[in-house]
Amino acid sequence: MARWIQFPDWADGTARLLHNALNKAFYLRDDLIDICRSVGLPPHEFDWGQPAAQLWLGITRDCADAGRLKELIEHVKGRCPAVGGDLDTVLSARNTGIEWYTTRERHLALLLGPGCARAVLDRRELRAHLLDLVHRQYPVLTITGEPGTGKSYSRYLIHHIAGDPALDCEFRTIDVEDDFYDRVDAAGFMTVLATRLGLDSAFDVDRHTEQARTVRELVNLFVGRFSTLPRRLRWVFIDGLDRPQVAPDVHMAVARLAKEVEAGQLFNTRLIVTGHSGEFAPPVMEVLRHEELSGLTTSHVHGFFRGLADHTGQPISDNELEELAEAVLAEADLADLALLGAAASRAAHIRFSSGGEP
């Protein structure tokens, strides 16, 4: 069973113990800046106007990503022996949950969900774009591709990133296929979006005029209501805009929402959409990331198992890779992502879950 400091679970009791001890030890800004310098973190990357308890969440996460979490803990322990007992507990802790697989960097995860039951193969470009949403503040991401290439499946990785406790993000999803029984127009779409965010969903607009005017009125009302929400980070994922029941004015509404996001009118919001036609205003194109999906290949299956071998520290031979890939593809077709992911996950558990203990 891996040591907690190697693969920290930021939502468990060990993480709470660590952050409580760090916050007791040092809570003045100058001390925290000095500690960052001592462990090699660039102080200019932090917003020092935050409370110390919030700053420690970012500092520990960055140290873990850089492989310096143990160094940070030892440094604080040396400077403040009073919290040494709690920090020793953290240093000796091991991951005890059923999820045997974790990664230092959340966006690199190949297995997701309770029990690590869902596999994510490939998606290198999506992983990079999600980092841009988190760190470089690109606010709009679009995902396109033919049916069956994984646009909807993207939600699992996106939710995994958004669920990072250090991000403190509110995540909301609209799934066209599940949320609408038949044809959906802009008014119906904006009603569901407002409802998901806890806003007044009654839109009194003229629906018997040109579509562009109706959409503009709908979005203007939405933006005004959005301004009453508590100011926090929100990720909104809209899936399935290429479904046949989606009216053209829904695409117009999404494009206008993206423009409002780019203009800062929807405070600290990230907009992620699949299947959109791609017609955005020029300012949006400057802050937009786009992933065009194509089908998976056998090499992606090989890459999945190579990645697991690397993450768990368990070497794997080329022959084993071939055998694992053949076993997975005997159960599932490359075009069936749900079935393929389940088969790959089962094979991964059999091969890797019992080994790799440091």
Rank of each mutant, 00 (worst) to 15 (best):
A2R: 12
R3P: 05
Q6L: 07
Q6H: 12
P8H: 09
A11V: 10
A25F: 12
Y27W: 14
Y27A: 14
Y27F: 13
D31A: 13
I33R: 13
C36P: 06
R37I: 09
R37W: 01
Q50G: 01
L55S: 01
G58H: 11
G58W: 12
R61I: 07
R61T: 14
D65S: 11
K70W: 00
E74C: 08
K77V: 07
G78C: 07
V83M: 09
G85S: 15
D86L: 13
L87D: 11
G97V: 04
E99P: 08
Y101A: 03
T103A: 11
E105R: 15
G115F: 04
R118A: 10
R118C: 10
A119H: 06
A119D: 07
A119Q: 06
L126Q: 03
A128T: 07
R136I: 08
Q137N: 15
P139W: 01
P139T: 05
P147Q: 12
K151H: 08
K151Y: 10
R155G: 05
L157W: 11
E170K: 02
I174D: 00
D175F: 04
E177S: 03
R183E: 14
A187D: 09
G188V: 06
F189W: 05
M190E: 03
M190P: 09
A194C: 08
A194I: 08
T195R: 13
F203P: 00
R207I: 07
H208C: 05
R213P: 00
R213D: 13
E217A: 13
L218T: 02
L218K: 06
L221D: 08
L221G: 01
L221T: 05
G224T: 04
L229N: 08
P230G: 11
R232P: 01
I238T: 00
D239W: 00
D239P: 04
G240C: 00
L241S: 01
A247V: 01
D249W: 09
D249E: 10
V250T: 07
H251C: 02
M252T: 06
V254S: 02
A255G: 15
A255L: 01
A263I: 07
G264W: 12
F267W: 14
N268W: 06
N268C: 09
R270M: 07
L271F: 08
T274E: 09
G275K: 02
H276C: 02
S277A: 10
F280C: 04
F280H: 06
P282I: 02
V284R: 04
R289Y: 04
R289I: 01
L293G: 09
G295Y: 15
V301W: 06
R306D: 14
L308Q: 04
H311Y: 10
N319R: 14
E320F: 01
A325T: 15
E326I: 03
E331Q: 15
L334P: 14
A342H: 11
A342N: 12
A342M: 12
A348F: 06
S354E: 10
